[in-house]
Design a protein around this nucleic acid. Structure first.
Lengths: 242, 242
DNA sequence: AGAATGAACAATCAATAAATTATTCACTGG
DNA sequence: CCAGTGAATAATTTATTGATTGTTCATTCT
């Protein structure tokens, strides 16, 4: 068992080297086999296919990334607020530098996610757990006030989406993103800190789809028909924010 | 002038029809010319190139989308909070349905943005103006408390990034996204509503890059070398959230 | 003159062929 | 039996070519 484990490791090491140097697509099984001084066929005794080697590498690196973020929790910081801020900024900086310095890593991740969607879901879940732990501790200590820890965790995670792998969404600089994130965190933290008189602010209810927008849509439609002669169906608008 | 203007409109109408039916790439200038009963060369008296026709169409649709959102403001809603919620949910639903029903529209937008990055920046800016107006009104009426309207606008807009063209980032259903967005808005609104004793919660400061993370990174590095024999440089992690 | 043409040229795309690669499996040596 | 092989095959990628398309411009209407 130990024997075949080290062989497997040898393959992973060789693959990591080649993937990060030349990229996943340009690395061939034959090359990996040669690096490990074995035949191509033998690789398949350890991995079901080429993609599975990439999945294993990605899985390990995702785990170690969360470890980096989690380590912030062990650092002697004074408040839950500070922990939260540190973790979020660490995420921004870590992923920003990653995309900046290791483009092949992004490529690998995209390939893995594109035919193992579950991979992404699990990675995000792991990350959320870190958030949840901070919120939980903050609530227990009375520093934060929230009625629903899991829901707030999801909210926090979603609201900071733009600051994970930010270059996928924007071409702002890291400094600009940091300034922006500080503003986002200011609002969020204010929403978590308890008020002097228990919290009075009710939750947001999902508005009815027909309430305001249908009013708005019909108003615009009316304005539209005034000065346009086209008879085609309204197809909507564009502009993208990825 | 009026003559050449209607010719230009004729081209736009023909292009919109073809683009939405067959897509931008599969529509040829020769076809547009035929639709307009003119020669291919004549198109170039009205547009510098094929892409500029797409830009004009996208520009108009982006403007009319903001009109739809803006119309929410004219609807008789009671509070700034409600306006904010309506606008954000309208955005989610509008863009969600757009991607669901009009895939060609997304394609067009991506093509336009990919060689006119400025287009996206301006579209986002227009959208942010709607947010800013609501925040400004809410502040004036005393319903919201914020020291810095432009900064809070940016924060609000950034925190809701995931809910514009959500399918680009996730494959959650609309209902799931709505539930999530409600949580996000709950936290944000709580951060905007004034406390009984003027606001005491200080802004988030951008943490020093070295403070917690360097501590964390070295801790993990130490743990790593314990049980791994690879000598390669740490290349970071993956997992993507688009 | 201004408006429009359509042949000409360069750039891009699609189709196909050629080469490379992933994967399998009957086989070998220990 | 187990670790490993490498030639055979299936799948994918790359290269090549021919056709299509975007764009220009000298020329023709009106």
């Amino acid at each position: 068992m130990s024997e075949s484990d080290t062989t497997r490791e040898k393959i992973i090491v060789a693959a990591r080297e080649r993937f990060s140097h030349y990229g996943y697509p340009k690395t061939t099984i034959a090359e990996l086999a040669e690096d490990c001084a074995m035949s191509p066929g033998n690789i398949y005794r350890f991995f079901k296919g080429k993609i599975d080697i990439a999945v294993e590498i990605a899985r390990r690196e995702a785990l170690s990334a969360v470890e980096v973020i989690e380590a912030v929790l062990d650092c002697p910081l004074r408040s839950a607020r500070q922990r939260l801020e540190e973790v979020v900024f660490a995420d921004l900086r870590y992923t920003f530098h990653l995309l900046e310095n290791q483009p092949k890593t992004l490529e690998l991740a995209q390939i893995v996610v594109s035919d193992r969607p579950q991979f992404q879901i699990e990675s995000l879940r792991r990350e959320r757990r870190v958030f949840q732990r901070i919120l939980h501790e903050g609530k227990a200590s009375g520093e934060f006030m929230l009625d629903n820890v899991p829901a707030t965790t999801i909210a926090l995670h979603a609201a900071t989406t733009k600051y994970r792998y930010a270059q996928l969404f924007t071409n702002q600089t890291l400094a600009e993103l940091e300034r922006e994130l500080a503003h986002v965190m200011t609002v969020i933290i204010r929403g978590l800190i308890p008020t002097s008189e228990g919290h009075a602010v009710a939750e947001t209810q999902i508005p009815d789809e027909t309430t305001a927008l249908s009013f708005a849509a019909s108003a615009v439609a009316a304005a539209d028909t005034e000065n346009r002669s086209e008879k085609e169906v309204k197809t909507g608008t564009e502009e993208v924010s990825w």
